[in-house]
Nucleic acid binder design. Structure first.
Length: 521
RNA sequence: GGCUCCGUGGCCAAGUGGCUAAGGCAACGGAUUGCAAAUCCGUCAUCGUCGGUUCGACUCCGACCGGAGCCUCCA
């Protein structure tokens, strides 16, 4: 079963075939670094990081580029508001972005090109476009000539005629078509500017991606990704420029991730308002509510760092991957909390495994390649058969347009299978018979392998041992000892009192056959 | 108005032209436990509505209802 990828260009899943066999070039539109990143900015990186992991696992050599837009109107405006230079603001926000990627375990990005460092490459493309008749200078600006591009609109499914009707924005006086967009913008006094054959100015929004993708990855790349909101006009224009410039297909597969939406904060939009059109007031209200629910550009959207204070980054990553990447995701604290609960069972299993085998789950070195991974097919224990089937289902899901939601489901099934095995074989009861251990270790190895592809359960939660923790641990051992004595004497009233009081302190006791465990939460 | 997309159990969420429609959270029953916790076993949906195509559709087509995004430099 070959890998299949949904291509926005064709609106269907296609067999995955790269420009160069065995290699994948991948470009993801990165952030404009003008304010701290919010959770929505993490969706693309997490998804494409996972895609890269899976492609690498499948034997491809992947090169992944994410650009940093460090010159832009929003950046200029915000720098002016804050009274800092564009450069300083950009640097600060770039660092914020990098910090967040690291926290989210996004570490597969190979290149971070900066727009301001590729002005020459952009100008080269613009010059070529003018030369070929696809662009024209106008009063210090340079515009792309949409009418000259025969297949303009093919990505988003629009035609120039439709754009004419739909556009209400007033046209720049000399533009030949309202849809024509700026490749180069002449600068006003005080704005960042670079010299150019068309006068001092700065690049248009779309040209940087064309230039940097071309420079680092070549004329034709395999995967171009970004948020659904970028499909038009950004990607449409990027595509038009690049293909008009090189005469070659720009990207084989256009992949767009769904957008994250805030939910819960304000009531849901719509509810029961009448059919459309009759009540302008309602419509306006609905519009406003809609705006409020949008994360993008919304001032209320919490920064990623604020979110990390409340939720574990791994939980957030898992949450993002539990839904198909093309679907919109409703974001709320409750949703994240629910995901956190669903992950507890994994951490519990890791503890159990360590108790049984003496090995840490996190120390397992699992297979990193689809081919080298054990197939389990020749083994004797019935568990191996199940492992084999689970692995097959996982790969089948991921092969189907990176269906991480289905893959996550397999992880839960694998968890249940291993817990059932432990339960059946009574492995967690100081069982001296170790003959049932190898299959369990194989299963844990598989869990490690498959979860690593999603980028979760990779490192143990840091257990910071402070003086307080040491004291607490000592205290707990004492309390547990006292309670054990009480239980031995059938003094359950005391035993239960201790446990209930500890519960109120968010400490849970777990009486096992040979010992009593405790944990917070 | 134009262009995309979506509507699966209480909530979240995979998936398929015809075997028992994944999984998670919640709930309930049972095993285990002194009682719990954890774990295991089990129960809980006919897939927005109405038509059509088909031997057969939740899955394909149409209409309608409901929701989302884009057309305004928002990932």
């Amino acid at each position: 079963m070959p890998l299949r990828v949904y291509n926005t260009l064709s609106r269907q899943k296609e067999d995955f075939q790269t420009v160069t066999p065995g290699k994948v070039s991948m470009y993801l539109c990165g952030p404009t670094v003008y304010k701290p990143a919010h959770i929505g900015h993490m969706v693309g990186p997490v998804i494409f990081d996972t895609i890269k992991r899976y492609l690498t696992y499948s034997g491809y050599q992947v090169t992944w580029v994410v650009n940093i837009t460090d010159v832009d109107d929003k950046l200029i405006n915000r720098a002016n508001e804050k009274g800092v230079t564009v450069d300083a603001l950009a640097k600060e926000m770039t660092q914020d972005y990098f910090d967040n990627l690291k926290t989210m375990a996004v570490d597969g990005i190979d290149h971070f090109p900066y727009a301001t460092q590729h002005i020459q490459e952009m100008q080269d493309i613009i010059a070529t476009l003018i030369e070929k008749g696809f662009a024209y200078p106008l009063e210090g600006d340079v515009y792309f000539n949409c009418a000259q591009d025969a297949d303009y609109g093919k990505l988003s499914g629009r035609s120039l005629e439709q754009l004419l009707v739909g556009t209400r924005a007033e046209t720049h006086g000399g533009k030949r078509h309202p849809a024509d967009f700026a490749l180069w913008k002449g600068s006003k006094p005080g704005e960042p500017a670079w010299p150019s054959p068309w006068g001092p100015g700065r690049p248009g929004w779309h040209i940087e991606c064309s230039a940097m993708a071309k420079k680092i990855l070549g004329d034709s790349i395999d995967i171009h990704g970004g948020g659904l909101d970028l499909m038009f006009p950004h990607h449409e224009n990027e595509l038009a420029q690049s293909e008009s410039c090189t005469g070659k297909p720009f990207a084989r597969y256009w992949m767009h991730n769904g957008l994250m939406q805030a939910s819960g904060a304000s009531g849901k939009v719509g509810g029961g308002h009448d059919k459309q059109g009759d009540k302008p007031a309602d419509l306006t209200a609905a519009k406003e509510a809609q705006e409020a629910n949008k994360l993008a550009g919304s001032k209320g959207a919490a920064s990623v760092k604020e979110l990390f204070a409340k939720h574990d980054a791994e939980t957030i990553r898992f949450f993002l991957l539990a839904t198909h990447y093309r679907s919109p995701i409703d974001f709320s604290d409750d949703r994240i909390a629910e995901t956190g609960k669903s992950l507890e069972g994994f951490h519990r299993l890791f503890e159990t495994f360590e108790r049984i085998s003496g090995n840490s789950f996190y120390a397992i070195s699992a297979g990193t390649s689809r081919d080298q991974s054990p197939s389990f097919s020749g083994e004797s224990s019935p568990l191996y058969l199940e492992l084999h089937e689970l692995r097959r289902r996982y790969l089948e899901s991921m092969d189907d347009d990176f269906n991480t939601g289905g893959a996550v489901g397999v992880l839960f099934d694998l968890r249940k299978t291993l817990n059932a095995y432990i339960s059946d074989q009574k492995l967690d009861t100081a069982n001296p018979d170790t003959s049932h251990l190898p299959p369990l270790k194989a299963g844990m190895g598989l869990l490690k392998e498959l979860s690593s592809i999603l980028g979760v359960f990779r490192v143990a939660k840091p257990k910071v041992k402070t003086a307080d923790d040491a004291t607490l641990d000592g205290l707990m051992q004492l309390v547990i000892q006292i309670r054990a004595d009480a239980r031995k004497n059938k003094n359950f009233a005391v035993a239960d009192l201790i446990r209930n009081k500890l519960n109120e302190l968010k400490i849970t006791l777990e009486d096992r056959t040979d010992q009593t465990l405790w944990r917070r939460g």
